[in-house]
């Protein structure tokens, strides 16, 4: 494996360097890719980091979805390339239709920035294979629009297909079923609101997030 991971940067993305560093910690080679790029050839995984792509104008992810790089992301994701969207990246993936549902304003109308305990629900996704079912990890959240919303029918499909990756232990934002992260049916596309890259060094107070990137590496090799 080459270990090359595309870290996609939109105008307004702000977690790209944290993600690069976390990838480096597990031995992967992250490379920044500007949103105007039309091809993602040669990359073994894709990460869409957090931030405020295109200023979050209209809705988070609504404008990013039409950036050049998105068609390459859709093609790669459909070809089975591991693709992870963190926070704003999760919002981009739902807007692009690569993941079901949508992220709505937090039910308490507060911007939330604090560590949250998460339960590992599925271990068959690209970010959870080195974790154990029902294991509790703690990762920081940092969002205003993290309230995961989907139709009842869509929610039942998520459960049926083992697509719920993480649930909050104490639902902070009103998400349906306390959902913090989901995958597509194939398991190779994952979106999660919590930031694993912000818990990837003891200096940051926790290394719980490293498992997410280790799982990603495991999937590639």
């Amino acid at each position: 494996m080459s270990g090359r991971v595309a870290v996609v940067v939109f105008p307004g993305t702000n977690c790209e360097y944290d993600v690069l560093r976390a990838l480096q910690r597990v031995g992967l080679k992250g490379e920044l890719v500007w949103h105007g790029e039309g091809s993602l050839e040669g990359y073994e995984a894709i990460v869409i980091p957090g931030g405020f792509a295109h200023g979050d104008y209209l809705r988070p992810g609504a404008i990013a979805r039409f950036s050049n790089v998105m068609s390459a992301i859709v093609d790669s994701a459909n070809a089975g390339i591991p693709t992870l969207g963190i926070c704003n990246g999760f919002q981009v993936l739902t807007e692009a239709g690569l993941l079901p549902g949508a992220l709505q304003k937090n039910s308490g109308l507060k911007f939330l920035c604090r560590p949250e305990k998460l339960e590992v629900v599925s271990t068959s996704s690209i970010v959870s294979s080195t974790l154990v079912k029902a294991q509790i990890i703690e990762l920081p959240i940092n969002h205003f629009e993290g309230n995961y919303t989907i139709s009842q029918e869509g929610y039942e499909k998520l459960i049926e297909n083992d697509q719920v990756v993480f649930r909050y232990v104490d639902n902070p934002n009103g998400s349906m079923g306390s959902i913090a992260g989901i995958s597509n049916t194939a398991g190779n596309v994952v979106g999660m609101m919590p930031h694993p890259e912000r818990a990837s060094d003891l200096l940051l107070g926790s290394i719980d997030g490293l498992s997410v990137f280790e799982s990603l590496k495991f999937k590639i090799s």
Partner: peptide, 8 residues
């Protein structure tokens, strides 16, 4: 296509 999100 753009102004609304059909989920919400």
């Amino acid at each position: 296509r753009l102004l609304s999100n059909p989920v919400l």
